[in-house]
Each structure stands twice: as C-alpha cells, then as structure tokens.
C-alpha cells in the first residue's frame, strides 16, 4: 500500500512549467529518496506534495485521497510534516516555543518529548534559547524535531545535510533511521552516500521529469545509471 501517489503531476511557477507529468508511488514506511541534479525539480516536487505550489488537479494522493488543491494547513493536519531546505525555524522564538507551535493543542506529550531529547540532546540544553542563536546543526535538529514532536504519517525533508559538519550528519542519520521505524520519510538529498545508507526506494528527477524509479539496491549497483543521472563517478 503506497502512502503517496503522484499521477501525472504538473507544476507551474509563474509562467514556467517546472514539473512535467511526474508519476511515482511512495510505499508506506521507510525512507523514500528523491535524487537529481541541482535545479532538476526535487524541491518543487516536495513543495507540490505539501500544497505550497499549485499542482494539476487529481495528481497528488495521500493514503488514496486526492489532496491536490487542498490548502497546505489542511495537508499538515492530515499528518504530513515538512522540513524545508532553509529549515524554516522561527528565530525570534525559543526552542520551546518553536516546538510548542508544532503541537496540536499547545501541550507536549512527556514521553514523546523525552524521545525527541534522546534524538537531539542539544535541544534540551538550549530549551529556552532563541532559535536564532543556535548553530546551523542545532537549527536543523530543531527543524526535524518540530516535524516529529507529535506522531505524523509522512515527513517531507529537503536536503537536511546541506552545510552540516560530519558529526551532525551522523546524528541526523541515526535520527532518521529511528524516525523511519514509525513514519514514512521522503528525503531530498544531494549527498548520495547519506541517501544510499538510509533509502529503500528512490526516484530520480531530471529536468522536471521522473528519470528513474526503483529500489535503492538496484540503482546502487548500476554505476552507469548513476553516472548518467547524477554525474556520480
């Protein structure tokens, strides 16, 4: 059973057509990776699923329900979280306030919060610190923590390792591996080694079209395909 189905999804931004008839299915559970060169349309695909860009009608399905045309807030309330490339944290708010906004009723579930602390211990330490004062890695932790502070069914994560130190990337890797036990992740990633170690399935986007879909194992073993689609030697 797939959690997300894209059927001939077309997305325009202003007068430009960015995505052309994108179709693929994301199975429930695990990590689904979106790969592609810069400007291929990966971020636009995530944003289209989240309702942040208008898509063609009847082209995005979440658990079998057509969500194309729904308001972003409605999609979020269905259990979809989004971690944007720029992290989207609120710098003027404390770590606690950032996380509180991501809860449905403004209250934390204690066991869930302990689990988040265990994933990202730095957040407990900087609980009352303004998010603007955090380091890049801590901001990324906060952004991911905000997506998991309450149980979600699907998390869309856009380039989480961009510009981070190796130790933080290792922390992120472990966190995603644990989160994906209970939640489906769609991960946009340029770091192929990182994506390869987490992903079960993948789609490669090239020039606004789906160039490949399949299992990570099959893609990993085809060096010629990697070189052609990603420029990986």
């Amino acid at each position: 059973m797939s959690i997300v189905q894209l059927q001939d999804m077309t997305t325009n931004i202003g007068p430009y057509r960015i995505l052309h008839n994108v179709s693929f299915e994301v199975p429930t559970g695990g990590v689904f990776v979106l790969l592609g060169r810069n400007g291929a349309g990966k971020t636009t695909t995530l944003r289209s699923i989240m309702g942040l860009w208008q898509t063609s009608p009847k082209s995005v399905f979440f658990k079998g329900k057509d969500i194309s045309g729904l308001h972003t807030s409605e999609i979020a309330r269905m259990g979809v979280a989004y971690v944007p490339e720029n992290m989207g944290i609120f710098g003027g708010l404390t770590v606690e306030e950032n996380l509180r906004l991501a809860t449905t009723k403004g209250k934390f579930d204690k066991s869930r919060l302990s689990w988040v602390y265990q994933l990202f211990p730095a957040l407990e330490k900087f609980w009352h610190t303004k998010a603007a004062a955090l380091s890049g890695g801590q901001k990324q932790m906060l952004s991911v923590a905000r997506a998991v502070i309450e149980p979600r069914e699907l998390i869309l994560i856009d380039e989480p390792t961009k510009g981070l130190a190796p130790a933080i990337i290792a922390n992120m890797h472990d966190a995603f591996a644990e989160i994906s036990q209970t939640t489906t992740l769609i991960l946009v990633e340029q770091n192929f080694a990182f994506a390869r170690s987490l992903g079960n399935q993948l789609a490669v986007i090239d020039d606004g079209c789906v160039a490949y879909t399949g299992s990570m194992n099959a893609f990993e073993s085809d060096a010629e395909l990697q070189a052609r689609l990603l420029g990986v030697a």
Partner: peptide, 19 residues
C-alpha cells in the same frame, strides 16, 4: 506566538497546520 511566528515565516506557519 502564532503572530510572532507568522511575521518571520508565513509559509512555515501554514506548513504547521495553521490558516
């Protein structure tokens, strides 16, 4: 809290489920 967040990043407030 929502207004302060909205001043900074409207899109993210919507992505958290608020109108």
């Amino acid at each position: 809290l929502l207004v302060r967040a909205g001043v900074e990043n409207r899109e993210m407030v919507e992505a958290l489920g608020y109108r």
